[in-house]
Simulated assay, not measured.
Amino acid sequence: MAKESKKTKAAGNPYFTVPGMTPSQGAEVAALLQNRLTALTDLHLTLKHVHWNVVGPNFISVHEMLDPQVDAVREMADTVAERIATLGASPVGTPGAIVADRDWSDYSIGRAGAIEHLGALDLVYTGVITDHRSAIAATEELDPITQDMLIGQSAALEQFHWFVRAHLESTGGHLSTEGAVTEVQATERAGAKRRSA
């Protein structure tokens, strides 16, 4: 089952939902989507943060690669919020609710080299995609319309993740960040690999 927010749920118990679902089913899907809304909002802000703080020889290519990702992820968040509203609930997108809803830490890297930031983003994308896939599984029978939306978003997120990983991958297919479990570890490993190249 996909992660459901422990703190913030899509506001309100819906009195109505889409045809073919009960209000309680609509509320269940809306709660699941609230977690995805929080994750996508956090992701597009994190991508913009990286866009502003990336430096070094690969600055311009990474800086310009990220803006289309920011725009696409922001659009995904909007689509999720509108689906929550369609289901009869109220999407919550205030900064305080987003912070309260997260069960992950804030992005921890400030000004850093392009490869170092990409190492950290590898882990960020891994988390978002993994949770999106869990939400896909959770909506398979409950709401195939929401599932279809999440599948389309996952395809785009996985492509963006590939763009990030291509910078970290050797010709043999190994990632410079292999085995890293924190953003700081990923940053250090990516940077060490870049310096030894």
Rank of each mutant, 00 (worst) to 15 (best):
R36E: 05
R36P: 02
L37S: 01
L37C: 02
T38H: 10
D42A: 10
T46M: 09
K48Q: 00
H49Q: 11
H49T: 12
H51G: 05
N53D: 02
V54S: 00
V54C: 00
V54D: 00
V54K: 00
V55H: 13
V55N: 09
F59M: 11
F59T: 09
V62P: 03
V62C: 02
H63K: 04
M65T: 15
P68L: 12
Q69N: 07
V70M: 10
V70C: 12
D71S: 15
V73S: 07
A77H: 08
V80L: 00
E82P: 04
R83S: 03
A85W: 11
T86V: 06
L87F: 05
G88N: 07
A89E: 02
S90A: 15
V92T: 08
V92S: 08
T94W: 06
T94Y: 09
T94F: 07
G96L: 09
A97N: 13
A97P: 13
V99I: 10
D101E: 08
D101C: 04
D103I: 14
W104D: 15
S105C: 08
I109V: 02
I109P: 00
R111K: 13
A112R: 11
G113S: 05
H117A: 13
L121M: 09
L121I: 08
L121H: 01
D122T: 14
D122E: 15
L123T: 12
Y125R: 07
T126N: 13
G127C: 10
